[in-house]
Structure formats: structure tokens, C-alpha cells
Nucleic acid binder design. Structure first.
Lengths: 346, 346
DNA sequence: ACTGTCGTGGGTAACGTTGCCCAAATGTTT
DNA sequence: AAACATTTGGGCAACGTTACCCACGACAGT
């Protein structure tokens, strides 16, 4: 039964004393800065190991770096985001940076609070995934802290962006469905309740891509969009509305797998079969879509790659805040599975 | 085109000057400490608002509190954890605390690194979900930082625990299957590669609960456990092994929904129907299980409640580090759905 | 009038780290 | 041999906040 004594934390001063050098020396070794001899490095490293010293991020933060990167995800329950996160962390594996996730940011207000809290904690940089804040606010944030924005189709001089080509992704789905013989193809989009900087958001671009592709195929008269959210609930009610139409669509393209999931439920509940009576496609190619009982046709936007690129850009921007901004656009691919097929005859 | 000037951060000194009071006064108002008159509070609050002041967590951390709580999750892709997290954040909604998530902790080494990084960042407290570290290490951590452990069936004087009664949960599944007429009920368990403090882990307790329930029904001869991991892959290969048995089980109880998902795939791939040829049950009652196309019978362990309890205990422990430790055990319930039914005749 | 007590406010020294500067010793060029 | 460059190490002052003290005036009870 060891007594849980409250030890005072080992500091750089303890290490310096133990290694018989100055605190400056220890600090230099820690940051492998200029002006350290091999023998000194040796002594210091040994002292660090013997005392089990760990630098205080708080004290470092007060002076500058914290070696902490923040990632904001809009919805932790959406299975697409873990994949992006995985890309981020695996890119940072061999660095000194620690990634921390800020969860639960529903709405512009909560998002601003979350971003502020990351700034307050002196993080070295942040990755914002599909933020809903107005453009001007993002610019302001990026002026304060190194920032990479994922998903938004924006171009700024002070932040970098990584996004999927949502126009192309939506076109892949429409092209696929048209080539199967569909004409009445409907879309379930995500609509923010607070309308700010709409046209930059990935969901809006997907809807626009759908419309353009439909027009390209001469199907402008068949364009049919219902506005919900990218959630199971949104997909469910959206699909139900579509199924109640006098001329029911023969295919539903949901802007996200999680919405497609809800749509599939609505279709099943209506007693219709997939893809016999109606085809359903999603977006994101989440693990759920690959599940063989579901086998959802979906657009793959390479979440891991997005995450890795975002991490890389963030490190570059931390190293040089004034460097030219970069915009990376990744090309999506279509993964055809069992939920899409030819429309019913007649 | 606003020029992105690098503003110096607004500090407590600026606020003090602007409000014509001392920094001490501002600090007191911020923490609503003793010794502030209403008029002073008024002045300070106005100055804070006018300057847009935000306290630096780094500086606060150096002195004591950071108002930051850390949550470690073992696997961000497992859909059960978002639910727990949701419970945590909703309980903390109206407090000054910010929750940060530390992702990706596969294995004991990565876990230790993650915990250390939270301690380095002077977090006020941490919630560890199903940690795999040895008992002694957890005690040591809890001696350094306020700690609540979720999932482990442990009892300590210095950390609190919240767990589901996994023995009872496993029994619910076995009882249900037996009442349907099953006898050959197999179990897919999760086995850590690094074997430390095995018997405390929820997965091991579930397996033990399965064994006890089988014995209670006089089915000790039918006990059949395959060891994998709580992943889709683990469930898939585990189920395949079970299906290849000369005397194939009539029911499979996977220790987690995500493993049950893999098991369902293996069953489908073997050309068997659920629940006609074989029944499948899971654990956690994740959103996936509720999906009507899957309709997985599963044990609900009230993730939101677990998270809320953990948050509450953590705040209590932060307020009083010496208080008696608490152990909360929640009773699971069984949600019967479509993947379980009577065994095939003969 | 004299001692306490209370309410109100401020001064100051940390907390642990790092960037800037300077000093001494050593090596290199003219 | 003198002048200069380079390497090696340390002193010191921040960074922004808070806990601990002390000072002052007002007011109550002797």
C-alpha cells in the first residue's frame, strides 16, 4: 500500500542542479538549440532520465510554444471524422506535437467558443473541420493562430485549406445513376440553420454539383432537392418526403453516408426494396457503407489523406506564418456497391 | 481587405488599467473570489467586455487551474464512445471547464504517453475510458492528477470509477438466448496483446459473466470462447472460426456491437440467415444496432449516463482531492431486436 | 475615546520556461 | 604575436496569472 504522497513536480531547475549545469543549458538541450556540446547533452539527457523530468506545457505556453495542436470536429458521431483524425495523428506520430480534439460544436456560437478556448490554451495551431463560422471570423482566427481549414471551398492569404472536389464527387454519383438509366434522381442536402457564408460549405457545393450534373445530362426538369441535415434523422425524414411525391424518384443521392443510412430506413419502412424499387447513394464511404449487409454505393473522399495533408500544411504554417497559403483539392472516387442498380421498368 | 495585424494579446494588466483598478481586483472578479464590491465587479466586467479580454490558460496553468479536463478514449471509431463523451460534455455545459479529447491510444505505451501529455498540460482532471495500464500505474497517475476511470472494475482510495455491471449484462444475453431454447451459445471476447491487470477490464468481466451464466444454466459443457479484439475484423474472424466448428453454435454473443457487426458479416458470407440459422447478440447498444436493417439485439449500458456520472465525480474530486472515493455501477438492460430468435429445429 | 472586526482594495512574489545578451575559452587568420 | 571568429556555457528578465499578505477606512461594542 504505497502512500500517495503529493510530489512536487520535477522542474528544469532540478535537472540543472542534478546535471551540474545551468537551466539555460537544459533548455537548450531540450529544444536542441545552438550552443550545446555533446558532453553537456549527454549529462543533461541522463539527468532527465534519472529524474523523470517532463517539461511543463503551461510554462512553455507562457513563453511561446506548447507543442499542442487542436482539431475541431463538428460531429463526433459521424463516422467519417475518425478517419480524417487518423490521418492527422499518423502524420504527427514522430513529432513532438500532441493532438487534442475539441468535441461537440453544434452551431456558430458553440464553434466560436471552442475555437476561443483553443486559442486561450496557446495551442501552436488548429485544424478546423467544416467550420460554419462566417468567412471574416475565420480570417480573424487565422490572424491569431496558425490555422488549416478542412472542407470549406475558400481561398485566403492567411490560412490553408484542404478539401475534396465536391462538385466532381456529386457528378460521379449522378453520372453513375444516369448511366444505369435513372432520370428522376433526388438529392438530400444539409442546410445550416444559421445562414452564413453558405456557398463555401462542402454540403452546399455537393448540392450545386448535383444540380450542374443534372443540367449537363439535360435533366434540369428532374432536379429535386430536400433540405435537412447530415444526420440519420435528416436522411430519414428527407427520404420520406421524397417517397411521398406523386412521381416518386427512382434514385436518392444523400450528401453523406449517415444521411443515406436514414434514407435506407425510410425506404425499407415504406416497403420498398433497394435497389429494385429505388437506388440510394451516399457520400464519404464510411465504414458503415462497406458493411456487407448495407453495401452502400458511396463517394470516397480519402479521409486519411485529407487529415495527413492538413497536418502537413499546419506544420509548414507553424514553421513560417508568412508563407504563401496553399489550397489542396483531392479528387474523389466512386465506390459502386449494392444499393444502386437500374430503375424499375416502366 | 483587412490587414492581419498581429495584435498583442489583451492581458489582465490592460483590463486593470482600463477599469482603473488593480490586477488583483480583476483576478478576484474573474474567479468571483472574496473581497469584491458590486461596483468594482461592474467596472471590471465592463472593461473585460470592451477589451474582449480572455484569460490565458497557460498562465493560469502555471499558477494552478487551467479549467481544462481531458478525456482519453481507446478507440475513436467505436460508436459507443461518442455517447459517453456526450454525457460528459452535456454535464459540463454550464461550467467554465473545457473538455479536450486525446485520441488514438492503442496499447499500454501509447496510453502512458497520452496520459503524460495531459498531465504536462496541467489539466485539472482526466477521465480515462477503459484504460489498459497496470493498476499501479493508474494509482500513480491518480496521485498526480484528479482521475476518474470508466469501465475498469477496480476499487481505489484515490480514484473514482464508473462502470457498467458487465457480469449482469452478459447474464442478460445468456438468459435471453437460453429462454429462446439455445444451448450452444458461443462468446467472442476481446483480449489485450499486453497482458496486464486482466481481470479488471470490462471485456474480461463480460467473458466471465458469460461463463458464470452458462454454468448457472447447467451449460458448462457448451462454454465456447474465442479471443479476438472488439473490432469489426475481430468479430469477423472470430465468427468464422466458430462457424467452422464441427458442432456449430446456434448463437453468438459478441462482447461489443462493433464485433457483432463483423460477426454478422461472417454469418452472411457463410450463407446462413439470422436469426433463422443462427442468433447474434452484441453489447453497447450503439446507433448501429438500432439501424433497422441490422436490428441487433444488444445490451444497453447507458453511455450518456456513464459520461455524466464520470464528469460529476471528476468535479467533486477536483473540489476535494482527499474525499472518499466512489464507485458507481450502472445496471445494464437488454434490448431485444431482430438478430435473436429460437434456434433451428433439430 | 479605545480597541476589535469587517469590508474593501492593492502590492508583491512566485509558478517553469525560454530568448536575448554577455563572458570566457578555444581556434584561426594575418 | 596580435587581431579576430567561433564555440561553449550562464545570468537574467520577461511571459500572465493568482495566493498570500498588508493597509486603510467604517463601524460596533466597551
Amino acid at each position: 500500500m504505497t502512500r500517495p504522497v503529493q510530489h512536487r513536480r520535477v522542474t528544469i531547475v532540478d535537472v540543472a542542479r542534478h546535471a551540474q549545469v545551468s537551466t539555460t543549458a537544459v533548455s537548450k538541450v531540450l529544444r536542441n538549440a545552438y550552443g550545446t556540446s555533446p558532453s553537456m547533452r549527454e549529462k543533461v539527457h541522463q539527468a532527465i532520465a534519472e529524474l523523470g523530468y517532463r517539461p511543463s506545457a503551461a510554462a512553455r505556453g507562457l513563453r511561446g510554444q506548447t507543442y499542442t495542436l487542436g482539431v475541431m470536429v463538428p460531429d463526433i458521431a459521424n463516422p467519417f471524422f475518425p478517419e480524417v483524425l487518423d490521418g492527422v495523428t499518423s502524420w504527427l506520430r514522430d513529432t513532438d506535437y500532441q493532438v487534442l480534439l475539441a468535441p461537440g460544436c453544434a452551431g456558430e456560437l458553440a464553434e466560436a467558443k471552442t475555437i476561443d478556448s483553443m486559442i486561450d490554451r496557446s495551442m501552436d495551431g488548429i485544424i478546423l473541420i467544416a467550420p460554419v463560422s462566417p468567412r471574416a471570423h475565420l480570417e480573424h482566427v487565422a490572424g491569431t493562430i496558425a490555422t488549416v481549414i478542412v472542407g470549406r471551398h475558400a481561398r485566403s492569404t492567411i490560412f490553408d485549406t484542404v478539401a475534396d472536389d465536391d462538385i466532381a464527387g456529386a457528378a460521379l454519383v449522378v453520372d453513375h445513376l444516369v448511366s444505369l438509366g435513372h432520370r428522376r434522381i433526388a438529392h438530400i442536402e444539409h442546410l445550416e440553420t444559421e445562414p452564413s457564408c453558405i456557398e463555401e460549405m462542402p454540403n452546399m457545393v455537393r448540392a450545386e454539383g448535383y444540380r450542374r450534373a443534372m443540367r449537363r445530362h439535360g435533366l434540369q426538369a428532374e432536379i429535386d432537392v430536400v433540405s435537412r441535415t447530415y444526420t440519420r434523422e435528416g436522411g430519414f425524414t428527407g427520404a420520406r418526403e421524397l417517397l411521398d411525391r406523386p412521381r416518386r424518384p427512382t434514385a436518392i443521392f444523400a450528401g453523406a453516408d449517415i444521411a443515406a443510412m436514414g434514407a435506407l430506413e425510410a425506404v425499407a419502412q415504406a416497403g420498398l426494396s433497394v435497389p429494385g424499387d429505388i437506388s440510394v447513394a451516399g457520400y464519404d464511404n464510411t465504414p458503415f457503407a462497406t458493411f456487407s449487409q448495407v453495401s452502400l454505393t458511396s463517394v470516397d473522399q480519402a479521409g486519411r489523406q485529407i487529415g495527413a495533408d492538413a497536418a502537413r500544411l499546419l506544420l509548414e504554417r507553424i514553421a513560417d506564418r508568412a508563407r504563401r497559403s496553399a489550397q489542396i483539392t483531392l479528387s474523389p472516387t466512386l465506390v459502386v456497391r449494392g444499393t444502386t442498380g437500374p430503375p424499375p421498368a416502366g
